[in-house]
């Protein structure tokens, strides 16, 4: 079965190849993503994240989920020396870079719990696959209808950060300026929580990003710098065989 829906501001495509009726599980996936949007969007004034950001939530009022998100933000901020920061000066609290991967990974968990074993969930360009191998293309940064690499992935996540879709929206927390040095950076990791956060943070680090991401446990990297050179790890699961 296949289903596409716009949630959290981007299209989410789900394909389940298992035999059987997974309509209920698919409904649960999109219900959770809509819930995550309501609770964790910094663009909705009444969301948990917005209320937390303006100091309207006491410590005892934080949900377990928000506490988990805050922990992920703090880990990433420390690991990047401040290049990733959910609290940039002059901006409200914005944990989007962490929430996206985390919430989609949880959605994938709902499918697994429902018995799905072979599925592909693509949330606005961040992909989690169960079973495999699945052929996941990396979008060419300058040609929307072309890919610049094809990966063969099994039970893994692929996330890409880049400035070509939404402009210079990723800031380097160390300088407060838009990140420079890379056209896009893709991370393959066991979970989308790790892949998405690492890709975003590495993009914020700019030229230092590829080596930083490659040093993260379990992460394989494919980066394109502004000189249009590809930098990738040796362990990247590049698809072999038919183009």
């Amino acid at each position: 079965m296949r289903h596409v829906e716009h949630v959290m501001g981007f299209p989410v495509s789900l394909r389940i190849d298992d035999e059987g009726d997974f309509t209920g599980a698919a409904d649960a996936v999109f219900a959770w993503l809509r819930e995550a949007d309501v609770r964790f969007s910094p663009f909705k004034p009444d969301s948990e994240v917005s209320r937390y950001g303006r100091g309207a939530l006491a410590d005892g009022e934080l949900s377990a989920d928000l506490t988990e998100v805050l922990g992920l933000c703090a880990d990433l901020r420390g690991a990047t020396g401040g290049a990733f920061d959910a609290r940039l000066p002059g901006r409200g609290f914005d944990p989007c870079a962490v929430v996206k991967g985390w919430s989609v990974q949880r959605a994938a968990g709902l499918l697994t719990a429902a018995g799905a074993r072979r599925f592909c969930l693509n949330a606005g360009g961040d992909v989690f696959v169960s079973g495999g191998p699945w052929r996941v293309g990396i979008r060419h940064p300058e040609q929307a209808d072309q890919v610049c690499a094809v990966l063969a992935v099994t039970d893994a996540a692929v996330a890409t950060s880049g400035g070509y879709e939404r402009g210079e929206h990723i800031l380097d927390g160390r300088t407060g300026r838009p990140a420079t040095g890379l056209l896009s950076l893709t991370v393959v990791a066991p979970t989308l929580t790790e892949a998405d956060a690492t890709a975003t943070a590495a993009f914020a680090l700019g030229a230092d990003g590829p080596a930083w991401a490659a040093a993260r446990t379990g992460c394989e990297v494919f980066a394109i710098d502004t000189a249009r050179q590809v930098l990738r790890t040796r362990g990247l699961p590049v698809a072999q065989g038919l183009p």
Partner: peptide
């Protein structure tokens, strides 16, 4: 320091199941 391989950027159309890219707008 993890070793990174350098390659030339290629553009190709290939049979794929899904595409990873920077977050797309509607």
């Amino acid at each position: 320091i993890p070793e990174l391989v350098t390659e030339t950027l290629k553009a190709q159309s290939a049979h794929i199941d899904s595409v990873s890219g920077a977050t797309v707008t509607s």
